[in-house]
Design a protein around this nucleic acid. Sequence first.
DNA 1: CTGTTAGCGCATTCAG
DNA 2: CTGAATGCGCTAACAG
Lengths: 343, 343
Amino acid sequence: MSNEGDAPKPRAQRLGVREIAKRVGVAPMTVSRVLSNPDMVSPETRARVLKAIDQAGFVPNRLASSMRGSGRMIGTVVPPLINSGIAEQVQGMSDECHESGYSMLLVQGEFTTEAEEHSIRTLIGWRPAGLILQSFVQSDAARSLLQNGATPVVEISEIKGHKPIDMVVGVSNFETAYAMTMHLAAKGYKRVGFVSTPIHGNDRLQQRRIGYHAALKDLGIKDRAGMEVEVPLTAQGGAEALNRLTDRHKDIDAIFFSSDTLAVGAIQECHRRGWKIPDRIGIAGYGDIDLAAQLFPPLTTVRVDRYEMGRRSVRVLLSRLSGNQKIPTITSLGFEIVDRDSA
Amino acid sequence: MSNEGDAPKPRAQRLGVREIAKRVGVAPMTVSRVLSNPDMVSPETRARVLKAIDQAGFVPNRLASSMRGSGRMIGTVVPPLINSGIAEQVQGMSDECHESGYSMLLVQGEFTTEAEEHSIRTLIGWRPAGLILQSFVQSDAARSLLQNGATPVVEISEIKGHKPIDMVVGVSNFETAYAMTMHLAAKGYKRVGFVSTPIHGNDRLQQRRIGYHAALKDLGIKDRAGMEVEVPLTAQGGAEALNRLTDRHKDIDAIFFSSDTLAVGAIQECHRRGWKIPDRIGIAGYGDIDLAAQLFPPLTTVRVDRYEMGRRSVRVLLSRLSGNQKIPTITSLGFEIVDRDSA
DNA sequence: CTGTTAGCGCATTCAG
DNA sequence: CTGAATGCGCTAACAG
């Protein structure tokens, strides 16, 4: 029933290091070395192996390599990509990964405890060399998953008051919002509203809100009810926020939006109403998206280099992977208040 | 030197199906079954295994599973995410993957032959269950990589005149551009310019351009020199295109932008100049991004459901993976000319 | 329903 | 510089 003795074991000639080795007349190990440590192989042998690989159209199996410890994959969980400026970060991460020969496993997660934990489990299942998280790790289950494992973790997160799991890259959202609120005050605005997208579970937004309040307090401005709203992350959300806020308080003179997308929507709404910006109302955003400078009127906003944040997070991770333990646990990128015409 | 006889083989108790099995007192295979075919295991055994897994915080190694043939990873190569509407597609793909228990390996590629080939090689190295490509596969090397392999491939691509590698999901960019050009003509515009982002290597953009020309021809409008420009995919690019086109031809009365991002930029430029839209010039976009409807004035554009395209491509792929061979090779999604006020 | 055997393709030893 | 043996963790395939 089984073919042991005579049949030449007709196993389909699967294309692998073994097969290539056979064709060239060397040991599989030699082929493997050509792939990962070319210098350990003599130039001639190497050339012959390379040629065979090319002719066969052989693409080494990365899964197998990874199982032996040298995985070149990094996993990341990010918030929804649309309208959020996250796309820039992902681009930065992707570029940096690519240049270093890493692949990127991407999971999108919402800001809920269960979703977060599930995403992290999924990623860990693939035994990535490292993890980059943009969700605020809340659940204890998730934290312990991460801390037990030997997988390095970079959180792209709020810098302030955060107990890092491992490494953190980010900006102080508190500072940025504080700075923008102060900036608006310095420009003469007295009654500044604040608009955010859903804050729950997002430490960055939370800190922006706190920064806004801290600035008001330091300015000696009393909190008034109804100066804040929460809307979906869409241009329409921005318009809606403008409407709600200005309905409640006719005297509101500026609004600080926690996202440029929102601010852009609000500005369109002002055009629709025939309101002059910044005369009738000042509008400030957050993120400095591509459109911000081009907008009419140009948008005053907080510039955070999202692309660089993405790149940096990967770099920090890879640096740790290459055995460098001298890496600071926290990397804070700068920010800039970009003063344009909208406020 | 080696411990064979007496030493209890002190292999670090790695956490794996084996270890879990030992703790529960079953065979590794049973644990494996609990993981992938729970129904094949008796409820009690299953419960005990699940409990042990949970207590140990065990996350099964997906690399190992994948090597045995049941990989749940799909690979994708996409153009740059920023400003392109690709983010929506990625979101759709991600959501659909997630719901089906798949993970997504993401590679960003530029539209060059080498980059494309490199990206595809990288992806194939991970032996994904399937591939979704948004680059126009040009190089023969890449095509053969794809065709030899047994990996199902979905191309999100132009529908028209495309020789598919395997499956195709997309819209007819030709038709969309043709329809929009006709639409503009029907609204009375006589001299319509065309603006695109760099077209080279991007079959979708190529087809939009061809569609535009075909419509002009059918309308009996002669091609005039200088009615087209190519600019970077930024709002500023859109403004620049407007400037260049209106400098060349004072009498141009509408511009069809191959991307909403461009159109938005152009509209801002009009505001800056004090030009009324659509009186002084009509502006049409492509994509119907979130902002389009909210813009002042609202943007006339081509609506293509990018999110759905992403979802659909994954669904088509998974359907093929589950053995369904009756899948049509081409899936064409619809489009819609959204007539708003900007043209 | 459960267990046994065998091996996916590569790379880490260690020995030439 | 090259090779042989061994196993990463899991799951088909086949018994029982």
